[in-house]
Every structure is written in structure tokens, then in C-alpha cells.
Design a protein around this nucleic acid. Structure first.
Lengths: 136, 136
DNA sequence: ATTCGTGCAAACCCTTTGCAGGTAA
DNA sequence: TTACCTGCAAAGGGTTTGCACGAAT
């Protein structure tokens, strides 16, 4: 039994082809926007509607199976929680995205919790700036 | 001569009442959305149009007089670059925003630059998570 | 007199909502 | 059978664009 089926079952919700396909798409794509998820999912389950993609992403997030970050001014980026946690470095010049293991970040997260009582959601961390190539 | 007049003059651009009023509004408000800037500015310069607010914010950002951050899913938050740099702690539960001196953050910024060649834009840093009150 | 800037309206993108029919359980 | 889920279409928020008038220089 899959994670999805379990999570749905324990809440009395239904397992549908659309939900399966949307979760699969998020897992395969990295930093996928709702539109990108839609593009992949619609080819697999006979025309999954964009509306359903939005509703399903929201549901999957409540179930704890996916999260999202804001990596640009526009659409949010979704990824599966089964991936290892990471922070994002977003270059404002070239638009490139680097993923980083959260190691460098954990001391700061600890300090924010100790000094300010603030528990950072590490999956939502994105730093904007200029990457090595664009800084020259 | 004001910062604004100088910056405009050196580029052959014109000083208008609207531009003055929009910059003043950003300086007075903290984390102001374009809509909030509009609300304040329109009362001062005989109905500044929302379109002009957007165009002026973009211009002021190019001139280096304001910057913006994304503190929520929706509208961006503008602030004047004359304010001291700070990072933002955004609570996803209550929506509250704390500002923090960047001290805690500078070691990480240094490490990102040294290890990854990435120059973080400190005015765009926002951490999402749960504040002390909402964590209980 | 020349540009540049503004207001208005319409278009645009992304997202949410209302509703009726379809489907998992 | 009975909720729940989906698709469609329309509405909604935030933002951008085209165009002609108006204003700074």
C-alpha cells in the first residue's frame, strides 16, 4: 500500500487516478510549478484538469507528502517530502537554482529557535542573490 | 537636492509629483505592498493611479532606492534601501512578521560566498516557519 | 518643442470558486 | 447508495500593456 493510499484512507478520503498521477509528477519533477505538474499529469490520466492539480497539490501538502517554496516572483515550486531536505540558492541574474544540503544552515536555524523561539521550515528556505558565474 | 532628484537627473529622467509621493510612501510604510503604497500615495497627489505605482516601484528599484521581498504567497513587500538591512521571520500560522538584525545571518552569508561563490542579497531574505506563540 | 510620464481601459497570468455530473467506497 | 471528487466555466486578485493626452525640461 502506498503512502498516498495510507494517508487518504486514514482520513476517509478517496484514492483516485488523478491524485496518484499528480503525486507521481511532483516526485519526478524537481521544483515543479503547478503548470509543469499539470503538463506531465495530463498526459497520463486522460486530461487531468488544472483545477484538479491545484486542489490536489493543496491536499498533498496537508497530508505532508509535498511542500512548496517560492523560488521566483511567480509560481510556487513543489517537491516531494520524500526528497532530502535542502535549501535553495536562486540567482536573480540568470535564474539558476542550486540546491544545497542544509548543513550550513542548521546553526542559524538553531540560533533562531534559541534566541527568538522561531522554528524555521527548512523546506521553504530560498536565498536570492547572485551566483558565482553572474557575479563577475 | 533629494536622492530621488539626483538619481533621476543623472539618467535624464523627470522628477514628477507621483514619483516623489510613491517614494515617500514606501519610506513611511514598512513592508508595504503596491496596493498599500497606492492607498497612501493617491491621497497626496490627486489620485495617483495604481499603474503608475507599479511602474514607479520598478523604476525606484532600478535606481537602488527601494527593494522588495516576498513575505507571503501574494503581493511583494517594498521597503526603502535607506532603512537598515534586516531579515524577516514570517510565521505561516498567524502571518506575523518579525524583523531581525542581520548579525545572526552574516556567518552563513559569508560561508555561502566562500564555499559556493553565491552572494546573498540580504534584503530579500525571508524565513518561513512558526513563531514562538504559534509553536505551542 | 520634444520627449517622457501618466491615466484609463483592457488584457494577462495565476489561482480559486460554484455547480452539476461522475465515481470510489 | 452516498459522500466525495472532478471538470467546466466563470470570477477573482495582482500585474502588465497599448494608446492618446498631459507635463517636465
Amino acid at each position: 500500500m502506498s503512502d498516498l493510499a495510507d494517508a487518504l484512507r486514514t482520513r476517509g478520503l478517496r484514492l483516485t487516478a488523478q491524485r496518484q498521477v499528480v503525486l507521481d509528477a511532483v516526485r519526478e519533477l524537481t521544483h515543479a510549478t503547478p503548470e509543469q505538474v499539470h503538463a506531465l499529469a495530463r498526459g497520463r490520466a486522460a486530461g487531468v484538469n488544472i483545477t484538479t492539480v491545484y486542489r490536489t497539490l493543496e491536499l498533498l501538502e496537508q497530508l505532508g507528502l509535498v511542500t512548496h517554496t517560492h523560488l521566483s516572483h511567480g509560481a510556487p515550486a513543489y517537491h516531494a517530502t520524500s526528497e532530502p531536505a535542502h535549501v535553495h540558492l536562486v540567482c536573480r541574474a540568470c535564474g539558476g537554482i542550486q540546491e544545497l544540503a542544509p548543513d550550513l544552515f542548521t546553526p542559524l536555524a538553531g540560533a533562531l529557535l534559541a534566541n527568538h523561539g522561531f522554528a524555521v521550515d527548512i523546506d521553504h528556505v530560498a536565498f536570492f542573490g547572485a551566483c558565482a558565474d553572474c557575479r563577475e
